[in-house]
C-alpha cells in the first residue's frame, strides 16, 4: 500500500510538472465555454419549438439531448486522459530504461500496477465527474431542466473511464506506447460505434443491430456504463417527450441492469490478473 502510494505520487507529480493538468484545465474551460454557448443558442429556439408540438416538453428534449452530447464529449476527454496517463506505464517506460530503477526496489510489480492505476483512475474519475456535473449546471443555467438522476449517471461515467484506464494500463504491459494508444482508441471507437448501432437498431426496431450492440457493450463495459448513464438522465421521462428524445442522437440508450455491476468488478479483476501475470513474466 505504501509502495503503491509512492508510485501514484510520482505519477501525479509528473503530470503536474509536465503541465498536463494545466493543459487539460484550459481545454476543459474552452469545452465548457463552447458547450454553454451552444446551450444558450438552443435555449432561445426551444421556446418556439415547444409551441409547435403540443405534448412535447421542449426544455426536456433539448436539455436531455444537449447533456447527452456533453456526456459523449466528457467520456471522450476522460478516455484521452486515461490513455495518455498510462500509455507507456510499463513497456514504454521499460524500453526507455525508466522503469528498471523503480522495479528493483522492494516494491513488487503488482504494487507498481496498483499505484499507477490509482493515480490514473483517480485523476480521470475526478475529472469526468467534474465535467459531467459542470455540464449539468451549465445546461440548467439556460434551460429549465434537471436530469432525472444525477449521482448514478455521474458514477457510471466515472466507472466507464476507470475501465478505460484499466484497459490502457493493461495494454501498456503488452504493447509499446504508440501501439497501445492506437489499440485503446480503437476499442473506444468500437464501443461507441456499438452504442450508436444499438440506438439506430432501436429506432429501426432491428433486433440484430441491438444484439450486436448488446454483446459489444458487455465485451467493452465502459460503453455499457455510458449507455446506462445516458438512459439514467431521462429515467422518469415518458410520453411524447421520451419519444422525441429517443429519436435524437443520444436517446434510445440501452439499459444493462444490476448484473453490470458485479460483471464490471469481475472484468476489472480479470484485467488486473492478466496484466499482472503478463508483467511478472516480462523481462525488463
Amino acid at each position: 500500500m505504501r509502495g503503491a502510494g509512492i508510485v501514484a505520487g510520482v505519477a501525479l507529480r509528473e503530470s503536474v510538472r509536465r503541465r498536463v493538468f494545466v493543459v487539460v484545465a484550459l481545454l476543459t474551460v474552452a469545452f465548457l465555454g463552447l458547450y454553454g454557448l451552444g446551450v444558450w443558442r438552443v435555449s432561445r429556439e426551444v421556446t418556439e419549438f415547444g409551441d409547435f408540438q403540443s405534448g412535447v416538453d421542449g426544455d426536456v428534449v433539448a436539455g436531455a439531448t444537449l447533456l447527452g452530447l456533453s456526456m459523449f464529449a466528457t467520456l471522450f476527454l476522460g478516455a484521452i486522459l486515461a490513455v495518455f496517463l498510462t500509455l507507456n506505464a510499463v513497456r514504454g517506460d521499460a524500453e526507455r530504461g525508466l522503469l528498471q530503477p523503480l522495479i528493483v526496489r522492494p516494491l513488487g510489480r503488482g504494487t507498481f500496477l496498483l499505484g499507477r492505476f490509482a493515480a490514473t483512475a483517480g485523476v480521470c474519475v475526478t475529472y469526468t465527474v467534474f465535467v459531467f456535473l459542470a455540464s449539468v449546471v451549465i445546461t440548467n443555467l439556460f434551460i429549465d431542466w434537471w436530469p432525472d438522476r444525477l449521482f448514478v449517471p455521474a458514477f457510471q461515467m466515472a466507472v466507464a473511464v476507470a475501465v478505460l484506464a484499466a484497459l490502457a494500463l493493461g495494454g501498456s504491459v503488452l504493447l509499446s506506447s504508440t501501439a497501445n494508444g492506437i489499440a485503446i482508441f480503437m476499442l473506444f471507437g468500437a464501443g461507441l460505434t456499438a452504442g450508436l448501432l444499438g440506438q439506430i437498431g432501436e429506432a429501426l426496431s432491428s433486433e440484430t443491430l441491438q444484439d450486436v450492440s448488446q454483446v459489444t457493450s458487455w465485451i467493452l463495459p465502459f460503453e455499457a456504463h455510458y449507455q446506462n448513464a445516458l438512459s439514467q438522465i431521462t429515467a422518469d421521462t415518458f410520453g411524447f417527450s421520451r419519444f422525441a428524445i429517443d429519436l435524437g442522437p443520444f436517446g434510445g440508450a440501452q439499459e444493462f441492469g444490476w448484473f453490470l455491476w458485479p460483471f464490471t468488478a469481475l472484468y476489472l479483476g480479470a484485467i488486473a490478473f492478466g496484466a499482472l501475470a503478463a508483467f511478472r513474466r516480462r523481462d525488463l
Binding site: 509502495g3 509512492i6 510520482v10 509528473e14 510538472r17 509536465r18 526507455r96 530504461g97 525508466l98 528498471q100 530503477p101 523503480l102 528493483v104 526496489r105 522492494p106 516494491l107
Partner: peptide, 29 residues
C-alpha cells in the same frame, strides 16, 4: 531487493526530477 542497490547499464531517470528529489524518491522506496 531490499538488500541490493543496482545501476543498470542503460538507465534513465525522470528528466523532471532534481538530483535531490530523485534520491528522496528512492529513499522512500
Amino acid at each position: 531487493n531490499r538488500s541490493l542497490g543496482y545501476l543498470a547499464e542503460l538507465f534513465r531517470f525522470p528528466d523532471w526530477l532534481a538530483a535531490d528529489e530523485l534520491l528522496q524518491l528512492h529513499q522512500k522506496l
